[in-house]
Design a protein around this nucleic acid. Structure first.
Lengths: 345, 345
DNA sequence: TTGTAAGCGTTATCAG
DNA sequence: CTGATAACGCTTACAA
């Protein structure tokens, strides 16, 4: 008949009483800290387990220990979020790294950059998180100033040039873009177009530059079309590009969704892929493998990226100095959507 | 030169001093509670804003108020998680509902059912969450006993028959399955197979039964093949089924991933879809639209489901009585992967 | 309407 | 090594 005890929670005071010692010793024992005899420690641990004690993280956080939680705020419309495989992969990676150190992940979807900053401020003020992960870096990102000023441990995911000295996890997008352009050049394409993400992302300029330079070096006609990352925008951009007087024979997209949309658009217009136009996607996901023809894509391990970012953040929380970690450069995964350039009419 | 003040955080005591009142009044003012004059309230609010005060949720939670956070624990291998569009859609929906009430989402990926229960216990003990969302209900789900016993507000997402009286958000999977079977029957199919999720999910038995009954009612040869929800397992199951002496001409899958895998498998074996075999997927996602031929699928709004679940959980946290909420029944979205049964050889 | 003070469950300091 | 005891920031009776 233990039902009477059900309502109250077990505290370290209970454990201390039962183990005939003080709360301080219990705290030491439970946190594996020195300054306590092995005998007491074992007794405390045994009693805690028997009583079913579990730490009240609120109290712990309040007393100055960590919250054992990191924060991730995504700036996306929820419905877009759900369609981008990237984020779920990233989150999955983060979780896998957090799980082994039993940390939690606090997730928030913000409507815009201001809401994002607001969330970070709120979190740090409320001691809910020990640190934050910053994705989708923007040029002159205000979040970086905020975390720095507020002293919030943070890791930026994106190009170091946009991270202003914060610990950074990045992939070499410029090198990846070079591969893509050179692949098309090697296949004999003379006119290529890049369908790019908005300028508000820091990586956009980097990919823009790499695209321009490599295309020029290869002596290709080249052009950049600005789009957003949605399916619709990808289709619209593709239609416009393919309707031009001398349409390009190679297209490079900034994500997989737009590339798939382009594939559909090309088919609708009776164009063959890769017979009439070759398509390259960025972010190789299930989608790229499953469509017909399979999409040649710049493939990288987003799950690993998320895991690495989370691990580095835990380091930073533990006091590590800022550092820059480069992940594997996205590799061009060649599939059926790229082929020899069509011979001129 | 405000740099000296940077380290300390602003507390209600600071606000009280500055506003020349007590911490109690500040608390009342900040929480919009009665028992304070309008004049002081405004003064407090103004001072709080000026000082940049933000609530310490740790302290708040410790003092007995809520944590303003709900928990969601997913039992999946992280890499599988990232491939299932369902979860990201669900999370996106949850976030959208939470955002309007400025609540956070604590996410955890558990390796197995025990880890899941452990997470819930830990959360409730640590006062990190005000309530939890339960997805992927299992028959006799231990989590239900746990939340009940621990008095954790919870909402189950799944069939009410598995939710044991908890507030539940569900879709009528039996009705959805009937549509799928009748669709195939109407197209003249005489032999159909269901490639099903593992029995550990509560919905599996419900879909099994509906499949059997409807197929029998329609006078069809029918069979159920057990699989897991992965791409590989879907391909394996499809190969096995199509190799049988008298293969079925219609296949119904329990998710979209397996259905897409089946499509690829059929093509590899030189079979036409829907010429030789018709395919129906569950959970209509981008994938189903984008593959060729497009997949006929049971389509439902998972984002809305997540939003509804989150809203109902907030109700429960606010003391609402248990209730059952039925969401729209998945609708059969007919695409090119289903067609008339092939004429017997 | 206001202010005082007692928790909430830990951690951390500092004498024994 | 051990045990009181004071924070931590907020909520909430209870007094004034």
């Amino acid at each position: 008949m233990t039902s009477a005890a059900r309502a109250r929670r077990v505290t370290i005071a209970d454990v201390a009483r039962e183990a005939q010692t003080s709360t301080a010793s219990v705290s030491y024992a439970l946190n594996g800290r020195p300054g306590i005899s092995e005998a007491t420690r074992e007794r405390v641990l045994e009693v805690a387990a028997r009583l079913g004690w579990s730490p009240a993280s609120a109290a712990r956080a309040l007393a100055g220990a960590g919250a054992d939680t990191i924060g991730l705020v995504l700036t996306k419309d929820p419905r877009d979020l759900s369609v981008e495989p990237f984020y779920m992969q990233f989150i999955a990676g983060v979780e896998s790294a957090l799980a082994v150190r039993s940390r939690g992940l606090l997730l928030e979807v913000a409507a815009d950059a201001d809401a994002e900053v607001e969330a970070i401020r709120r979190w740090r003020g409320s001691r809910r998180v020990d640190g934050v992960l910053l994705t989708d870096l923007r040029p002159h990102d205000q979040r970086i100033a905020v975390v720095r000023e507020a002293g919030v441990p943070a890791v930026a995911v994106g190009d170091p040039s946009a991270a202003a000295g914060l610990t950074t996890v990045w992939t070499d997008d410029a090198a990846a873009m070079r591969q893509a352009v050179q692949h098309l050049a090697a296949l004999g394409h003379r006119r290529i177009t890049r369908v790019a993400a908005p300028r508000r992302y820091a990586y956009t300029a980097i990919r823009d530059d790499a695209f321009d330079q490599t295309a020029r070096a290869c002596g290709l006609d080249h052009d950049i079309v600005r789009s957003d990352l949605s399916e619709d925008a990808g289709a619209v951009a593709t239609r416009a590009v393919l309707s031009s007087p001398r349409p390009p024979t190679g297209l490079i997209f900034d994500n997989d969704i737009m590339a798939v949309a382009a594939l559909t658009t090309a088919h609708q217009r009776g164009l063959s892929v890769p017979g009439d136009v070759s398509i390259i996607a960025w972010d190789d996901s299930l989608l790229c493998r499953l469509v017909t023809p399979g999409l040649t894509a710049l493939s990288h391990d987003v799950v690993a990226l998320g895991a690495q970012a989370a691990r580095r953040l835990l380091d930073v929380i533990d006091g590590a100095e800022p550092a820059v970690y480069q992940e594997a450069t996205p590799m061009l995964q060649v599939r059926a959507s790229t082929g020899p350039a069509p011979t001129e009419a």
